[in-house]
Simulated scan of single mutants.
Amino acid sequence: MARAGLTTERLVRAGAELADEAGFEQVTLSALARRFDVRVASLYSHLRNSQDLKTKIALLALEELADRAADALAGRAGKDALNAFANVYRDYAREHPGRYAAARHPLDAGAASASAGGRHAQMTRAILRGYDLSGPDQTHAVRLLGSVFHGYVSLEMAGGFSHSTPDSQESWTRILEALDAVLREWPST
């Protein structure tokens, strides 16, 4: 019988909190069991193993990010939408570093199809339609945006910009301006 009060959702949320506090790589069933002061065996009626927990945290993070992005994009287009979308990712990574790392966790085909990843792709492509990009150019632009957002956020979170000037916010603003310019003047094939 499952220990009273333990549910899959409660365990996944606690795992996400643990990821934010200690790092996503530190999330294990043992660490989660210590948090609830139970034996690891008590968790098996809710989670198969640590990989299952990490997958569920990744799905939670993708859903949270998609919800935030959808709210931020409502009524926006063009550069305003691009900036809002980028800032959602950066702010989420700053607020929830472990969950942000989880959102990059590889998912098997079944989990990926059940994830909010499709919502992220739809929102990104909707932004790009405001730049009159379609087909393969949209795919290239999606990859460009993902690379820039994730690369910048990862370097910033690792302290890569903390001891230099101008400050990272000024660089972020200039990078978003440059991305807007690139998207408006996308090279033809």
Rank of each mutant, 00 (worst) to 15 (best):
M1W: 09
A2C: 13
A2F: 15
R3G: 08
R3C: 07
A4Q: 11
L6F: 04
T8L: 14
R10M: 10
L11P: 01
L11A: 10
V12W: 00
R13P: 03
A14E: 07
A14V: 03
A14C: 08
G15K: 01
A16P: 00
E17D: 09
E17N: 13
A19C: 13
D20F: 06
F24A: 02
E25W: 08
Q26Y: 13
S30A: 15
L32R: 00
R34K: 14
D37G: 15
V38W: 07
V38S: 05
R39C: 15
R39Q: 14
A41I: 10
S42C: 09
R48Y: 12
R48D: 08
N49Y: 03
D52K: 02
L53C: 06
L53A: 04
T55Y: 04
T55L: 05
I57R: 02
L59K: 01
L62R: 02
E64S: 14
A66D: 04
D71Y: 12
A72D: 00
A72K: 03
A72V: 02
A74N: 09
A77V: 12
G78N: 05
K79G: 07
K79T: 12
D80W: 00
F85I: 03
N87A: 11
N87P: 12
Y89G: 01
R90Q: 14
P97F: 05
P97M: 07
Y100F: 13
A101I: 03
A103E: 00
A103F: 00
A103N: 00
R104E: 08
H105L: 09
H105E: 01
P106H: 05
P106C: 04
L107T: 04
L107I: 02
L107R: 01
A109H: 12
G110P: 06
G110Q: 08
G110L: 06
A116E: 01
G117N: 05
A121H: 15
A121P: 09
M123N: 04
T124R: 12
R125A: 06
A126M: 10
L128W: 00
L128F: 03
R129H: 07
G130D: 02
G130T: 04
L133Q: 01
S134Y: 10
P136E: 13
D137L: 06
Q138M: 09
Q138L: 07
A141S: 10
V142N: 10
V142F: 09
L144N: 04
G146N: 06
G146T: 05
S147F: 10
S147N: 11
F149A: 09
H150V: 12
H150M: 10
V153G: 03
V153H: 04
V153W: 01
G159N: 07
G160W: 07
G160P: 01
F161Q: 04
S162Q: 12
T165N: 12
T165E: 13
D167S: 06
D167Q: 07
Q169W: 14
Q169N: 15
E170V: 15
E170D: 11
T173N: 14
E177Q: 11
A178K: 11
A178M: 09
D180C: 07
A181W: 11
V182C: 15
W186D: 00
P187F: 02
